[in-house]
Design a protein around this nucleic acid. Structure first.
Lengths: 129, 129
DNA sequence: CGGGATCCGCTGGGATACTG
DNA sequence: CAGTATCCCAGCGGATCCCG
């Protein structure tokens, strides 16, 4: 195996990102963390999500075998969503990501501010010359 | 705190995804895992990345304080990239994601196939009726 | 060598309205 | 209630050419 190409190892990252990288997936999984809930309940828990995106995200998660969907035909209809055992295996990963963000995101924000300052400073110096 | 809104806890996910969710960031970090390398070397290691995206990704990582950039003015110029200590804290997370993908991605693929089969089956039954 | 600048297609995702 | 359907736009990301 050639060390010049990390694609083989890297595709694992691509795969997992393919699943959780879109805007709402992680939040939906997180909202299902504590057990079965209904469509409307998920929507209420996730601030700002549109019906379209929620439906689309859930459908994708169902297709990937991470979430199961149970329809109770009644009027009005009831649709429950639950993490599958496979879906539950993602929870530790998500906790780790959450932990990282909680611990290190402030540093990232500080870095961004410094970067903007340095950038502005450079621009000023440019103008003076 | 109201259980109806997970936004507060959830924003941690949003933050970390904001950093690593785009197409190439994870791969770039991974290519820097073993120490300082040059721009061209990164590009060679990541199959399929364009200069634009590599430059853009590196700039964003530098802005976020995860990667440091060192320019050696010479002809031709040399530009080295290194993970900062902050950037290195991401490695364990990435390893965990990689581990998850290695272990569970096959299941996801199987789920996708079953889903497609069931979908096609339903379509057929629809036509028969 | 390590980028910057520009053009452009694709699609992620929001808003709104309608259905069973 | 739990979606589906449609319109629409911003921006991601690829391709290409140029520069110091």
């Amino acid at each position: 195996m050639k060390p010049a190409d990390i694609s083989h190892t890297a595709c694992s990252y691509t795969h997992v990102l393919e699943i959780i990288s879109n805007k709402w997936t992680a939040l939906v999984i997180y909202s299902l963390e504590n057990g079965t809930i209904r469509y409307g309940e998920i929507k209420r828990r996730i601030d700002g999500i549109s019906q379209k995106m929620l439906t689309q995200t859930l459908k994708q998660l169902e297709r990937d075998g991470l979430v199961s969907r149970k329809v109770t035909p009644s009027v009005p209809p009831i649709v429950d969503y639950t993490l599958t055992p496979l879906g539950e295996t993602l929870i530790p990963c998500m906790k780790m990501l959450k932990g990282w963000a909680a611990e290190h995101y402030p540093s990232v924000q500080k870095a961004r501010e410094s970067y903007l300052l340095a950038e502005a400073d450079a621009a000023v110096r440019q103008l003076k010359s």
